[in-house]
């Protein structure tokens, strides 16, 4: 127990020192000023239409989706929605999104997954980014409570769980904010979040309300 604790602390210290080093490096970088019209690679990009990219690396990417049937070390066995099988290899350069940027430890069998990566000669996909349980659905807000939104998606009732540190809202195309007090009952809202296999709810990452 003690050893584990020591281990954890030295790990934290290494992480802390590494961050300080990277901060110094980051603040020494070249400054680029301006806005662009190009999209990103964040969670929302998992749903983006495939489009020709300026970047040859992205054009070489492959995409996998399905349910994780087994986690075998750093390899995820994924059963695709159309019966296909994928082996998704995670590396320490793979970003893992599950409501927030997290680590491979958060991935559990039974989770759904979207992965972007590169085909390897051995048939696996070396993942650059995986999005776990990501859902992006248009809902109507049917109720607002302290820690949850009651939503309806079509004729289905869905509970959206709110997380103070991670749930943001965007109103009328504005910047994302932690201010959720402008949500109204009866409003249509695009909900981006992580599906919860255990109770079929959604951990809400972002509420985009049009009005």
């Amino acid at each position: 127990m003690n050893t584990g604790h020591q281990h954890g602390r030295s790990g934290d210290r290494r992480g802390f020192d590494r961050r300080r080093f990277l901060t110094r490096a980051a603040l020494g970088g070249a400054t680029v000023v301006g806005a662009s019209a190009l999209g990103g690679l964040d969670a929302e990009a998992a749903f983006a239409e495939p489009m020709p990219s300026l970047d040859p690396a992205i054009a070489r990417s492959t995409f996998a989706e399905g349910r994780i049937s087994r986690v075998n070390g750093s390899v995820l066995e994924v059963k695709g929605s159309y019966g296909e099988q994928h082996l998704v290899q995670l590396t320490n350069a793979t970003s893992v999104w599950k409501l927030r940027p997290t680590t491979a430890d958060a991935i559990k069998p039974g989770d759904g997954l979207y992965a972007r990566g590169v085909d390897m000669p051995d048939g696996t996909i070396a993942a650059d980014a995986v999005w776990v349980n990501i859902v992006n659905i248009l809902c109507t807000i049917r109720g607002i409570a302290k820690d949850r939104l009651h939503l309806s998606h079509g004729r289905h009732a869905v509970v959206g769980h709110l997380h103070a540190a991670h749930t943001t809202a965007s109103y009328l195309g504005g910047a994302q904010t932690a201010d959720l007090s402008r949500l109204r009952i009866g409003q249509s809202a695009q909900i981006l979040g992580a599906w919860r296999p255990e109770d079929d709810g959604i951990d809400v990452a972002r509420v985009t309300a049009g009005h």
Binding site: S36, G39, G40, L41, D42, Q176, A178, R206
Partner: peptide, 14 residues
Amino acid sequence: APVAASVELLERSL
């Protein structure tokens, strides 16, 4: 600003 807002800003930046 939440981190998501910074990421949003970054992804729209030059």
